Computed example of a mutant assay.
Amino acid sequence: MSGGDEVALLGPAEVRRVAADLGLRPTKRLGQNFVHDPNTVRRIVHAAGLTAGDVVLEVGPGLGSLTLGLLEAARHVLAVEIDPVLAKRLPETVGERAPGVAERLTVLTADALRLKESQLSPAPSVLVANLPYNVAVPVVLHLLAELPGLRGGLVMVQAEVADRMAAGPGSRTYGVPSVKAAWYAEVRRVATVPRSVFWPVPNVDSALVLLTRREPPAGVAREAVFDLVDAAFAQRRKTLRAALATWAGSAARAAELLDRAGVDPGARGEQLGVAEFARIAAVPPLRN
Results as ranks from 00 to 15, higher is better:
148 P>H: 07
165 M>T: 03
15 V>Q: 02
119 Q>D: 08
177 P>N: 03
47 A>R: 11
8 A>N: 07
26 P>E: 01
98 A>G: 01
96 E>Q: 05
204 V>C: 00
192 T>S: 10
82 I>R: 13
39 N>F: 11
254 A>W: 08
114 R>G: 10
190 V>A: 09
203 N>A: 15
152 G>I: 13
21 D>L: 08
196 S>D: 13
264 D>H: 12
163 D>G: 07
187 V>G: 03
156 M>I: 02
245 A>E: 04
20 A>T: 12
181 A>S: 10
72 E>R: 04
208 L>A: 04
125 S>C: 03
165 M>I: 05
203 N>D: 15
246 T>V: 15
103 E>P: 04
14 E>N: 01
59 V>S: 03
17 R>T: 05
206 S>G: 08
272 L>V: 10
76 H>N: 11
200 P>S: 09
280 I>C: 05
154 L>V: 01
198 F>Q: 02
284 P>Y: 05
66 L>S: 11
13 A>P: 00
52 A>C: 15
288 N>V: 06
79 A>N: 04
167 A>Q: 09
32 Q>L: 00
40 T>Q: 13
164 R>S: 06
195 R>V: 04
152 G>N: 07
114 R>A: 12
141 L>P: 14
86 L>S: 02
156 M>E: 09
140 V>D: 03
175 G>V: 11
280 I>E: 06
240 L>M: 09
89 R>M: 11
287 R>W: 00
179 V>A: 00
281 A>F: 06
282 A>C: 03
151 R>Y: 11
103 E>S: 14
235 Q>E: 15
18 V>S: 13
214 R>S: 11
87 A>D: 06
250 S>K: 01
65 S>G: 10
115 L>Y: 07
195 R>I: 12
42 R>A: 12
138 P>T: 04
39 N>W: 13
101 V>I: 00
116 K>S: 12
142 H>N: 11
192 T>N: 13
58 E>P: 04
48 A>E: 12
122 P>N: 01
225 V>L: 11
162 A>M: 00
57 L>E: 08
123 A>G: 06
235 Q>G: 06
11 G>K: 02
241 R>D: 09
33 N>G: 09
53 G>S: 15
204 V>Y: 02
280 I>P: 08
49 G>L: 14
191 A>M: 01
224 A>P: 14
30 L>E: 04
160 E>T: 06
83 D>H: 02
282 A>V: 01
14 E>D: 15
180 K>C: 13
216 P>F: 14
285 P>C: 02
254 A>F: 05
85 V>K: 03
237 R>E: 12
273 G>F: 01
83 D>W: 07
91 P>L: 05
81 E>K: 09
14 E>Q: 13
246 T>A: 15
95 G>E: 03
